[in-house]
Design a protein around this nucleic acid. Structure first.
Length: 355
DNA sequence: TAGGCCATCTGGTCCT
DNA sequence: AGGACCAGATGGCCTA
């Protein structure tokens, strides 16, 4: 009965709703979360406990009165035949002690649920870091992260199955399957692709893309992670967008040459994520400045997986020095590493592909 | 202002 | 009984 009272705000007098009480503590919690992150929950919990202890006695008394009124209403309904009486043990009257226990139990459950969701979000954050187009400044939504991860796994599986390097366009099409337009633009921006262009192709080649026996077309060094800054990705005062200022946007033109006027900056005005380094071990043809290295926040171990079976990239795993760079310890999320931990490996790869 | 996204609360269900 | 998990409800924030 009490649960019904709590779930149905109309049954509780204004100002005495348990939900309102919880919302008050929540609003305070939100503020504290913004200010102190992890400390906020503990503070909120303690505050919630305080709320229980300082709750006016008449609140619980009146809540109990509401319950009795509801029981009376049910009896009336039974007499009118409107609703059958519920079976089960007869509800015990909500005493003040029971209300207190209920609130305490509810608080503990809320705390557990909150922590559980935080853990889930942490796992999602880790997932964001290992899927293409990870950006600290523009996070993918939860649903888009899951979709992209699914597509990414599918794409890598297809690469492993076929043993061929995928065509860039098909690769991006696969990654963007089912993604929203903004996310599609983001992924496309990672590769400096005209998203509309490949979406059009996608609509024409859907069967080809996802046919059971489909295999990606081969293209040497396709979807490589070039570190040449594109005009849109030039760091410095001219570029104010946090993503656009990222110095490692790969360029489609760099990979394939300037193929079409369609690939203009106007087509890429959407927010740019850092480069799609699903195969960051690909040739790196531009020197980078220390400042650029500071901004480099991509993992590249997963790219090695993608190219592990293809000629040349499989060499990554044949090179002991490079293999050391892909030690499982290096598969930790980005935040688990300092930037300097990755730089030597990256440079090593750079030198490797320049030989 | 509508819609998307998110965090949180909440009650129900299942399991230990 | 208590915890984990889930889904619905709610309200806040942000953006087009």
């Amino acid at each position: 009965m009490l649960t019904r009272l709590f779930s149905d705000p109309t049954l509780i007098p204004e100002g005495q709703k348990y939900a309102a009480w919880a919302d008050d503590s929540e609003s305070d919690e939100d503020k504290m979360r913004e200010e102190r992150n992890s400390e906020s929950c503990e503070a909120a919990d303690s505050q919630a406990e305080d709320s229980v202890s300082v709750a006016p006695d008449n609140e619980e008394v009146e809540t109990g009165m509401e319950e009795e009124e509801q029981e009376e209403e049910e009896e009336v309904d039974e007499e009118n035949g409107a609703r059958p009486r519920k079976r089960g043990p007869k509800r015990r009257k909500m005493t003040k002690a029971r209300v207190e226990r209920f609130k305490l139990r509810r608080q503990k459950a809320n705390t557990r649920e909150r922590n559980r969701m935080h853990d889930l979000n942490s796992a999602l954050d880790n997932l964001r870091k290992v899927v293409p187009c990870y950006s600290k400044t523009q996070k993918l939504s939860k649903i888009e992260t899951l979709r992209l991860a699914k597509n990414y796994i599918w794409a890598l599986s297809e690469i492993l199955r076929s043993g061929k390097r995928p065509d860039l366009v098909f690769y991006v099409q696969t990654l963007c399957k089912g993604l929203s337009q903004p996310t599609t633009n983001l992924v496309a921006g990672c590769l400096q692709l005209n998203s509309r262009n490949f979406l059009t192709e996608q609509s024409q080649d859907t069967g080809r893309l996802h046919a059971p026996n489909s295999s990606f077309a081969m293209h040497p060094y396709s979807y490589q992670c070039a570190r040449l800054p594109s005009p849109q990705c030039q760091p410095g005062p001219a570029s104010t967008h946090p993503l656009r200022s990222h110095p490692y946007c790969s360029t489609y033109e760099h990979l394939y040459g300037n193929t079409s006027p369609e690939y203009t900056s106007s087509e890429l005005e959407g927010p740019l994520s850092p480069s799609l380094c699903t195969n960051g071990a690909y040739p790196l043809k531009a020197e980078s400045s220390p400042d650029q290295d500071k901004n480099y926040h991509y993992t590249m171990h997963y790219s090695a997986v993608a190219g592990s079976r293809s000629q040349g990239h499989g060499l990554l795993f044949n090179n002991p020095a490079l293999r050391a760079g892909f030690h499982p310890d290096n598969l930790l999320p980005y935040d688990s590493h300092g930037h300097h931990d990755r730089t030597p490996v990256y440079e090593e790869l750079n030198a490797f592909f320049h030989n």
